[in-house]
């Protein structure tokens, strides 16, 4: 007799896409299997017993039946609603950007518990954070690190020499800071991917990359610097993933 194969996973719903008559393709970041896509049948009908469990930012325990195309959702239980931002539009726009960013970086079938925990942490503390841009910078740099795209901020990404106390450059192609000496040797065609960066911003990027959120909060940081740093990292991310995130256009990095 043919045995039905099921699998149970813990994850956070990133988003869902309507498909067919009343179904949804649900994209989840899971603890066990990285990005996971599954089909939830009939969930757009008001009488569906699963629909309400599969909203974005819900941490769920999900059981799926493995099928030829997409696994089919058989059962879902809510572990917790990590954030309910839908009545705060700027926060909603921000968290949708975070979700899209995560979806672009994580791969299917690639377990990364640290990324899962990072996303969960950001969702949990988001509403209580005073400086949302700081949290966004923290999240983006940590995500880049965990995915192997963390920018080089301690030495020159070209010559590997220790950086002098002077303003530097940030090169997307080089993946980090470029010292003024190396900058003179870089071809003009690459200039559109290089930005000037002052010491204050480098320090802020380093702290955001290295420190924990609790420690980061103990530093006094200028919100203008956070906005500038965020813009650099956002452009770097666009360069890394080779496309502009759709939700990025609705964010204002200078104030929120």
């Amino acid at each position: 007799m043919h045995k039905i194969r099921t699998e149970s996973l813990t994850g956070i719903v990133l988003r869902s896409i309507p498909v067919g008559e009343a179904d949804r393709l649900v994209i989840i970041v899971t603890r066990e299997r990285g990005k996971f896509k599954c089909l939830a049948r009939g969930v757009r009908k008001p009488t569906s017993k699963l629909g309400g469990f599969l909203e974005p930012m819900h941490e769920v325990f999900i059981t799926v039946q493995i099928s030829r195309l997409y696994p089919i959702v058989k059962d879902v239980r809510t572990i917790g609603v990590l954030n309910q931002v839908s009545n705060n539009v700027p926060h909603y726009l921000y968290l949708m950007y975070v979700a899209e960013l995560l979806e672009s970086f994580i791969l299917e079938e690639e377990t990364n518990v640290e990324i899962f925990d990072l996303y969960k942490f950001v969702l949990q503390i988001f509403n209580d954070v005073h400086e949302v841009n700081m949290l966004s910078l923290f999240f983006q740099l940590k995500l880049l690190m965990l995915c192997g795209y963390g920018p080089e901020l301690s030495a020159c990404a070209e010559c590997r020499s220790v950086l002098n106390i002077e303003d530097q450059y940030f090169g997307f192609l080089q993946g980090g800071i470029i010292c003024p000496r190396c900058m003179t040797e870089i071809r003009r065609t690459q200039y559109s991917h290089i930005f000037e960066i002052n010491l204050q911003l480098i320090k802020l990027l380093r702290l955001s990359q290295r420190e924990t959120w609790d420690k980061l909060q103990t530093f006094k940081v200028n919100s203008e610097d956070i906005g500038k740093s965020l813009q650099i990292i956002n452009n770097y991310i666009t360069y890394v993933i080779d496309r502009k995130l759709k939700s990025a256009q609705f964010l204002k990095f200078d104030h929120i």
């Binding site: 009488t47 017993k49 699963l50 629909g51 309400g52 469990f53 909203e55 819900h58 809510t78 609603v81």
Partner: peptide, 14 residues
């Protein structure tokens, strides 16, 4: 809650 639905199956948000 939707008409015809069972309370025990209702999700947290609903």
């Amino acid at each position: 809650l939707p008409m015809g639905g069972d309370l025990e199956y209702a999700d947290f948000v609903t």
